[in-house]
């Protein structure tokens, strides 16, 4: 499968999806660590892709997303933003309802 199709499929199938460096339990970048921490605090399941293990995605996603850096949070098929946006939304109390509503919208799946 072409990388771009793989990306589209991941975004379509995972309604809460974090592209990051490393994993939420073992992040390889301070920004990815903060982003996944905030997302975990929302208390819903989410999917993640470790871009260090997927260099093709790391190379192609920025152009597709029109977003130059990682992490990237995708919710319900749309890019929410990177680390600073995730944290600011979390601190303003905007991230939690977005994540919760999305999790409730797709109850049969693993988000």
């Amino acid at each position: 499968m072409e990388t771009i199709d793989k990306i589209k499929q991941q975004i379509a199938e995972n309604h809460i999806l974090l592209y990051m460096k490393g994993s939420p339990k073992l992040p390889s970048c301070g920004f990815s660590a903060q982003a996944s921490q905030a997302l975990m605090s929302c208390g819903e399941q989410f999917a993640f892709v470790d871009i260090l293990q997927n260099p093709d995605i790391r190379a192609e996603l920025p152009a597709y997303a029109d977003w130059p850096t990682f992490p990237q949070l995708w919710v319900d098929g749309e890019l929410v933003g990177g680390c600073d946006i995730i944290l600011e939304m979390f601190q303003q109390g905007e991230l939690q309802p977005l994540i919760k509503e999305t999790a409730e919208k797709y109850p049969q799946e693993d988000a």
Binding site: W67, P68, G81, D84, I85
Partner: peptide, 10 residues
């Protein structure tokens, strides 16, 4: 929105 502000800077 935040994402559009960041995109403008990027």
């Amino acid at each position: 929105r935040l994402i559009n502000r960041h995109r403008a800077v990027n």
